[in-house]
Nucleic acid binder design. Structure first.
Lengths: 356, 356
DNA sequence: CTGAAAGCGCTAACAT
DNA sequence: ATGTTAGCGCTTTCAG
């Protein structure tokens, strides 16, 4: 019988040994019950379960990682500068929250943990920083947030180490579970909504080229315009990089066109809010003089005046999908199969109306 | 010489053994260098460092936890239902983000990780759920978010297991590092700001009694009113529970008073936004007919119309402070000493003006 | 100042 | 169907 904690110090935690003793079986049998292993009589299984319950035993993650091949940890990789800047500025972006909502809950359902890791993915530090995180944590899988799924250094490191990973917002084939929403269809849907209520001159503000989805959104817009029989109008496309400043600049250029658009689609919430502000400052009323459709649907767009019609990005579902696939992959085998495309939503609010 | 990874499988990670071999010293010496232990000649220290650098060695968290007494993990405890509800609703609250900003970065500076854990703290599950998290992770410290620092079941469990913890938003003495802002002073400052610009009848909407800071804020308001020589007016205080709905209800009751207030202080952003909306719907213009001061300063209050004057809660600094103290406590000793009170900020925006 | 030995709590092979 | 034996990669005694 393991002796009680001597005198002081931490009360010795209850281990698999205690359970084994309590149930009158071997260590290994307890391990089998915990891990759903085969070849355990129901009677014994029951006895072990009772002992676990009675003792309140919970296996130590660290020990499981040491003994076995799994760590029960998933790493969610985010860009350090970008993430910190978002948090500092309080810009209302809830990417990380939605990731946790989807990812942590899915992990919890399987006894996994999701650890958020910030990594400087731009500089040459990537290799060292990601390598350090992998060595310290030995995650069973890694969730890559955009645009990391398209970073060959990162995907290469993970592939080389045989660590399963999921690429959120990345659509290409190749290693890693590709998880995305149909950005092209979403942009087309936004465009079609505007066309349906009578708009003809529709501007489009792109996102940063660093993100694959930027191109997809632009393409969806173009195709929808084309399908409506409208001529190609390159001056209706303005470049942005997701930031407020770039959105303001782009909107100014669009509104200064001889034939200015009656509606604009911006590839991010920050740019849409910029469009709203610039339009107002220039004397245009939204949606009377200009309709706006936003992308992402972070919390703030519900609180602007008017609240913005937006394409909602299913971040939580994508994170949950990623976690689920990675956990499967970490256990049984599971090939990087077909891409996983999750549904988006067009949420109509007050920033869109028929042109006047 | 440790053999290379045989045939396939995960490339064997570089361990302390490889470093020892490379540097031509024993395991123990490497360990000493890593942990800043004493009694290592500078020459050797240098040699080991070079080997570590060359091999890109990073110690495994799990192994350190197994061998030693520290886990290099801090747990940030949040209420499950409340947190998930916030994420789901997209209400723009960034509590978790700010915690990560402060806590994770401070952890990273010391080679620690912060793991966010959601626990059902209301039901009887607390003991089981928290116990499970502690057993699985063996954190070196726990950060309690409000109102958990005042939950005796939780603080009792941690005290009993000798796990250092920090109580954010909890001011009482007793075990655990108390970390808070001066809520009383903050409420007084808000009140004084309104008094200074000429308000006399100032309403106050309280937060949930479950939170100690609710009482402190109310007290600060009362004292400031008293100091200004104004008579006690209980009808100017309306009960709320931090939610939008409760704020709306409270505002309606305040605005229906015979002598209605010309300004109101609400103990949360959600309640303030409710006040704004109710005031507008009742035909009062903000700030002309009613000034509003909010508490917390989450992102959304910058985007309302008008943007809200608010007391900014230093969540990130509090989390960083908590992490720093816990890490110190986990290593050298460190007594639960004097409470740590961090500075708040009154940010004046468009929702406050002199009464008309 | 440095090294050798023991063991943390678990799982993966191998018995039985 | 169950038990036994080795480690996993580190830190902590304890010897030199």
């Amino acid at each position: 019988m393991p002796n009680e904690d001597s005198a002081a110090r931490r009360p010795r935690a209850v281990t698999i040994k205690h359970v084994a003793a309590e149930a009158g079986v071997s260590l290994q049998t307890v391990s089998r019950v915990i891990n759903g292993g085969p070849n355990v009589r129901d009677t014994i299984k029951e006895r072990v379960r009772a002992a676990i319950e009675k003792l309140g035993y919970v296996p130590s993650l660290a020990a499981r990682r040491m003994g076995g091949t799994r760590s029960y940890v998933l790493l969610a990789l985010n860009d350090r500068d970008r993430t910190i800047e978002g948090w500092r500025s309080g810009d209302g972006t809830d990417w990380v929250d939605q990731m946790m909502l989807g990812g942590m809950l899915e992990c919890a359902r399987h006894g996994y943990r999701m650890i958020v890791e910030l990594v400087d993915t731009h500089s040459a530090h990537v290799e060292r920083e990601l390598g350090a995180a992998l060595a310290a944590l030995h995650p069973d899988g890694v969730i890559l947030t955009p645009p990391h799924g398209d970073n060959p250094i990162i995907t290469g490191m993970l592939t080389g180490r045989h660590i399963p990973f999921a690429r959120i917002g990345s659509t290409g084939t190749g290693p890693g579970f590709a998880i995305s929403m149909d950005d092209k269809r979403a942009a087309a849907a936004a465009t079609e909504h505007l066309l349906a209520i009578g708009h003809r001159r529709i501007g489009f503000i792109t996102g940063s080229d660093e993100y694959a989805l930027s191109g997809a959104r632009l393409e969806g817009y173009r195709e929808a315009m084309h399908s409506a029989g409208l001529p190609e109008a390159p001056d209706l496309v303005a470049r942005g990089d997701f930031t407020f400043a770039s959105g303001a600049e782009a909107t100014r250029s669009l509104l200064s066109l001889a034939e200015r658009p009656t509606a604009v689609i911006a590839s991010s919430d920050q740019m849409s809010l910029a469009a709203l502000e610039v339009a107002r400052s220039l004397g245009f009323e939204v949606p009377r003089d200009l309709s706006i459709i936003s992308f992402d649907d972070t919390p703030i767009v519900k609180f602007s005046v008017p609240p913005l019609t937006a394409i909602r990005q299913p971040i939580a579902p994508m994170a949950a999908c990623a976690a689920g696939l990675l956990i499967q992959a970490a256990n049984g085998e599971l090939a990087y199969d077909t891409p996983n495309v999750l549904p988006f939503e067009l949420i109509v609010r007050g920033s869109t109306a028929a042109p006047s």
